[in-house]
């Protein structure tokens, strides 16, 4: 008899190495929407030009059984080379980048700049009435910073989604 099913949800950061061919992203996204899986974040870019491969990083959540299913479903797509569950396969680093526009003046403006400094966000554009901060970090850190900016004139956010990689010598 199989162990009782763990029905609690967990978050998973999954990296997928794919053949860089037309339609591959549509296949991955279609798989998630067609089967009702969550996509919390998704990034894609070519990573091995000479071999024509791209890497897709997906942050998803579900029960252990659903996450196992997601990995198996991804792995059976024809253009997929490898699927790695970074959350499970040892320590990993996950980062995203955000561009955050804050429009304010006076005290709010000064406070925004101070907080940006504390969070190591860079000012990449400034006018008299606005800043654009560039910030790289974990999703949580970005969330925290964006929340802090809200009362200080947060106007617009543009985020890349998560890029992730295993720590140490391990490769996908």
């Amino acid at each position: 008899m199989a162990a009782p099913i763990d029905s609690s949800n967990r978050s998973a950061t999954i990296s997928v190495l794919v053949e860089n061919e037309a339609g591959v992203l549509a296949r991955v996204i279609g798989l998630f929407s067609g089967r009702g899986y969550n996509i919390d974040s998704l990034t894609v870019a070519p990573v091995e030009d000479e071999r024509g491969r791209s890497r897709i990083n997906i942050v998803t959540s579900g029960t252990e059984m659903v996450i196992e299913q997601i990995k198996a479903q991804l792995d059976r797509l024809v253009p997929v080379h490898r699927v790695a569950d970074l959350t499970r396969e040892g320590p990993h680093i996950a980062r995203e980048m955000a561009l955050i526009k804050v429009c304010s003046t006076g005290n709010d403006r000064a406070e925004a700049l101070r907080l940006a400094d504390a969070f190591r966000a860079r000012v990449v554009d400034a006018t008299i009435g606005s800043f654009v901060f560039e910030m790289t970090g974990s999703t949580d850190k970005l969330d925290a910073f964006v929340d802090l900016m809200r009362p200080l004139g947060l106007a617009e956010v543009s985020r890349t989604g998560v890029a992730a990689i295993a720590r140490g010598t391990r490769v996908i």
Binding site: M1, A2, A3, I5, M65, E68, Q69, A72, Q73, D75, R76
Partner: peptide, 23 residues
């Protein structure tokens, strides 16, 4: 089949543990 040890042979890993948890 509440009381069985389940062995599942399949060529498609996504068929395993999809509906029924197997041992």
């Amino acid at each position: 089949s509440p009381d069985s040890t389940k062995i599942h042979v399949d060529i498609d890993p996504s068929s395993i543990n999809k509906n029924v948890r197997v041992d």
